[in-house]
Amino acid sequence: MDKPHARYHRLIDAAVEAGAIRIAVVHPCDALSIAGADEAARMGLIVPVLVGPRAKIEAAAAAAGVDIAGYRLVDTPHSHAAADAAVALVHTGEVEALMKGSLHTDELMAAVVAREGGLRTARRVSHCFVMDVPGHADPLIITDAAINIAPDLEAKIDIVQNAIDLAQALGFPEVRVAVLSAMETVNPKIPSTVEAAALCKMAHRGQITGAVIDGPLALDNAVDLGAAAVKHIVSPVAGRANVLVVPDLEAGNMLAKSLSFLAGADAAGIVLGARVPIVLTSRADSVITRLASAAVACLVAAARRRTLAVPA
Rank of each mutant, 00 (worst) to 15 (best):
S258M: 13
L199H: 03
I270P: 02
R304Q: 15
T193L: 06
D30C: 07
A267T: 11
L103A: 03
E107M: 09
A238D: 12
A31R: 14
L108H: 03
L170I: 14
K56C: 03
D214P: 09
A169R: 13
A294D: 05
A41H: 15
T92F: 03
E96F: 01
V47Y: 13
V237W: 08
G52F: 07
A64E: 02
T105G: 04
R304K: 12
H5S: 07
H9N: 14
S260Y: 14
A63S: 15
P188C: 04
P4K: 07
A303W: 03
K231F: 10
V287L: 11
A37V: 14
A15K: 07
D266I: 09
G118A: 09
D248T: 10
P77Q: 05
L180N: 00
L119W: 00
R120H: 01
R305Q: 14
V26C: 10
N253A: 02
A229G: 10
V279R: 03
L166Q: 00
L166R: 03
L272M: 12
A303K: 08
V25S: 08
V113W: 02
V246A: 03
E58L: 14
V223Y: 01
K3I: 14
P247R: 06
L308D: 12
V230C: 01
L73T: 13
L249Y: 05
L219G: 04
L45N: 01
G36S: 14
A83T: 07
L225E: 14
M43A: 13
A150T: 13
S102T: 09
V51Q: 07
K257V: 13
S181N: 03
P173H: 04
A61Y: 10
